[in-house]
């Protein structure tokens, strides 16, 4: 069921998830389109998330934006593409390559106590090599050490890739096209901003060889949402994910389509990373319990990193 409406206020709105935003030319959403998008959100009872560009919007936009309850990504939620010296916002997104994540783990650890919540988002998940697993585990252990100290100091730190799993009892994933939908400045719906970027960049959607097209939209504000095969965006139609307990995994639909060519199938790399995090969350949980904290339902020990290796076979 849809719960969130993401509104890209400009083509250059900040990238806040796995996909880079390659668009460099400003293209502000027309005010009329913005109003229609808000109206759609109100009628469908959706929580609105505005995604801001790095420039100030015209005054008339601010009034419209404030007409509905919302979150401002790129404003309330700070988004960084490199590790900052310090963070002023309570909530922040840190987008990094795998190499930077590993190389700058101590810099990240240093800013961790400064925020209420930090979301780390890898920008090159699909390039992850199995040989990087040990380094990735070490970085996660570095963060675990910081988190334990924060708990001991009476805080409730949140680092998406480690602490989210402690609280979750079921899958809580990206939800593109299922729990959230994106409106672009052209007034069209997309499963998430990444699909809009691909369309704008002319990347083929592989849908129709004889009529090459980068068309990625799933409807527009005039005719409404038209998602084909919506069931394939849901957990029960994802054979690998429905048996998985890396509940915090992004299960990025865009990466699925990009790497395995099927929306419901995650790549080996996505699964490995999510399971390294899941297992590190288990370590964190055990350390917290040993220190006398309650830390959610027990995360079981498992002997695989990719659920493909233990998939249901008929």
């Amino acid at each position: 069921m849809l719960q969130y409406l993401v509104i890209l206020l400009d083509d250059t709105s900040v990238a806040y998830c796995h996909a880079e935003n390659p668009l460099r030319e400003r293209n502000l959403i027309p005010l009329d389109t913005l109003k229609k998008a808000i109206l759609f959100g109100m009628k469908e009872n959706l929580m609105i998330q505005y995604v801001y560009p790095d420039y100030d919007l015209p005054e008339e936009y601010n009034e419209v934006i404030e007409s509905i309850d919302h979150v401002k990504i790129g404003r309330d939620v700070a988004v960084y593409s490199e590790v900052p010296k310090s963070i002023a916002a309570e909530n922040a997104v840190l987008r990094l390559s795998i190499a930077d994540f590993i190389a700058k783990q101590y810099d990240i650890a240093a800013i961790l106590p400064q925020v209420t919540r930090l979301n780390i988002c890898l920008t090159d998940t699909e390039t992850f090599k199995d040989e990087q697993a040990e380094d990735y585990k070490k970085a996660l252990a570095t963060f675990n050490a910081v988190l334990i100290n924060q708990y001991k100091a009476g805080k409730q730190p949140q680092l998406n890739i480690l602490t989210d799993r402690l609280q979750l009892k079921e899958m809580h994933n990206c939800g593109a096209g299922d729990s959230n939908i994106t409106i672009a400045p052209n007034g069209k719906f997309y499963l998430c901003p990444a699909f809009y970027y691909d369309e704008k960049m002319g990347i083929s959607n592989r849908l129709n060889h004889h009529k090459p097209s980068s068309e990625r939209s799933v409807g527009n504000l005039e005719t409404g949402l038209q998602i084909s095969n919506p069931q394939l965006l849901k957990l029960d139609h994802a054979p690998l994910c429905r048996i998985c307990d890396a509940y915090h995994c992004n299960r990025c639909i865009w990466l699925n389509q990009k790497v395995t060519w099927d929306n419901n199938t995650p790549s080996h790399q996505q699964c490995i990373i999510a399971h390294l995090e899941r297992n590190a969350a288990r370590d964190l949980q055990q350390q917290l319990k040993a220190a006398g904290f309650s830390a959610g339902e027990e995360i079981k020990s498992i002997d695989y990193l990719d659920p493909f290796d233990v998939r249901e076979q008929f």
Binding site: N205, R206, L207, S228, N229, L232, Q257, D262, N263, N264
Partner: peptide, 8 residues
């Protein structure tokens, strides 16, 4: 299939 999938 309507989309790029082997699941339809």
């Amino acid at each position: 299939a309507q989309t790029h999938t082997v699941y339809e």
